[in-house]
Design a protein around this nucleic acid. Sequence first.
RNA 1: GCACUCGUAGCUCAGAUGGAUAGAGCGCUGCCCUCCGAAGGCAGAGGUCGUGAGUUCGAAUCUCGCCGAGUGCGCCA
Length: 590
Amino acid sequence: MSELRSGLGEAAGAAFAALGLPADLGRVTASDRPDLADFQCNGALAAAKSGAGPPREIAARIAAALAASPLVATAEIAGPGFVNIRVSDGALAARAAELAADPRSGARRVQASRRVIVDYGGPNVAKEMHVGHLRASIIGEAIKRLFRFLGDEVQGDAHFGDWGFQMGLLIIACGDEDPDIAALVDNSAPGPADEAILDRIGLDDLDRLYPAAAARAKTDPAYRDRARRATADLQAGKAGALFLWRHFARVTKVALERDFHTLGVDFDLWRGESDVDPLIAPMVADLAIKGLLVDDAGARIVRVAREDDKRPAPPLLVVSSEGSAMYGTTDLATILDRRTFFDPELCLYVVDQRQADHFLTVFRAAYLAGYASEGSLEHVGFGTMNGTDGKPFKTRAGGVLKLRDLIDMVAGKARERLAAADLGQELAPEDFQATALMVGVAALKFADLINYRGTSYVFDLERFSSFEGKTGPYLLYQAVRVKSLLRKAAEVGATPGPIAIADAAERELTLALDAFAGVLAEAYERRAPNLIAEHAFRLARSFSRFYGACPVLAAPDAQTRASRLALAQTTLAQLELALEVLGISIPERM
RNA sequence: GCACUCGUAGCUCAGAUGGAUAGAGCGCUGCCCUCCGAAGGCAGAGGUCGUGAGUUCGAAUCUCGCCGAGUGCGCCA
């Protein structure tokens, strides 16, 4: 037995096939009218459109065939030719029992596992994370977990931005501020004794120096040239520069990893742009041999426009007129790099939607050069996060809001809420802190994940730190409530037993549980974690209604109690799986 | 200028491949804790789905025009 929806769809499909019509007309969906039915099939209308006959007549044949299915209690025709299906309590009970026994709660696996890279997060050396990094890391993490859960072999790569012009800027900015560092850069053989000098530079220094240096480089050509030379020296392997650069990368990575980890985001790989640097020269030579490299206005480019482009795609700039590698160059080299150590069959770039053109050109160049098979590279774009004024989010002071500060703020609110609920004393101090953090992070992540990734949305601090309604804490609350219920049940020796479906709330809950597999499959196809977030909310709400309508421990009889206990346990298991995929952790109490 | 995205309740958002009475949360009104956790539940008000046409038995969804918002368009990443 599989999902009720697909089971019904197969039955309806067979009925269409028996009429000599395409089986895919039998697609069954959740009913738009829960007051009338659990599921519906609209295939008769589509069949009528292609000339198969009067829709109600076809619908009648389908309904008759469905009524014979053991899954179906009633199948009726309504309106112009809808088939309304109500599943039998027995079928629901059997499905619930199946889900209860399945550690994956009904989730299917992909038919053939693929090697997949998810490129997300986009951290850079010397830049602390701000709210703009929320989406990249949270959505990417959810997609990585989803693909892994459904059976692919997945590597999440932070794709560390550690090798560009900004490195040269930092080297000279640090040197200008501290003569010892300037000397260190020119030291041809720096050793352990010089480590102490490095310790003077922390992430806060880099975070402070970088924006100033970047701004100055725009207006001060001499400064810019020094930074360019420093960049070239670094990439040419100058010992002192490399020594300093490794320190930059190290301190940044430590801080970033800590912030990512707080958000439940952990990368398998921290491959950096620097790692692919050695691949660039041979790659450029290879592109030239393949005849793809063209000189244009002093630069060397690969033309990727196609005849059917509505607007001709811009070329990929491989070598600048100054001879340096560009953003697209390292991205192309990264594709080669990944092929050597992982040979991915699919690579998902979870990156801001605004870079769509960039990825289009890189992907086309990669296909032209034979570095990846057509269609194996995919940009999973997401919209920007705006302030309540519709412009990219800024704090009231006009600056960017650091992710760290946002997390602290939300965790602080959670602490207040926990204390107000008198959970302060019940929990040990470290558990109290950990729980507050979980609640706060759940609020943040869910508020982001519930939006479809492709559209921009408004970042409203109030909404992100709200704990009521359709929020992360609501989901945690329902899960914690079940846990509490199960603890109490264990205390009184109540055990789960065979599931029977009688109450409307039990039906609704079971139908929600049933939908999980289909939701995961669709979320996977569309790379859309919001569908899972939406499902988790629906499930939690169905449980909350069930909880209110159907006493468990005080059930009228032992069988009902055992059945409801089993339903509660199954709900918890699925909620845990769904939140696990979303990267949201659940506390024991809150 | 060209291309792409978007416009749905007072606010924030779901509604892909056309179907019945367009959903949810917040906010608002009114109920529900002597009963398993009220971060909860129930009920209600609130919408010409930007706008005008077209295709269709049927359009928030498809096509075109217009209005409005955003984004991108080789030597930053």
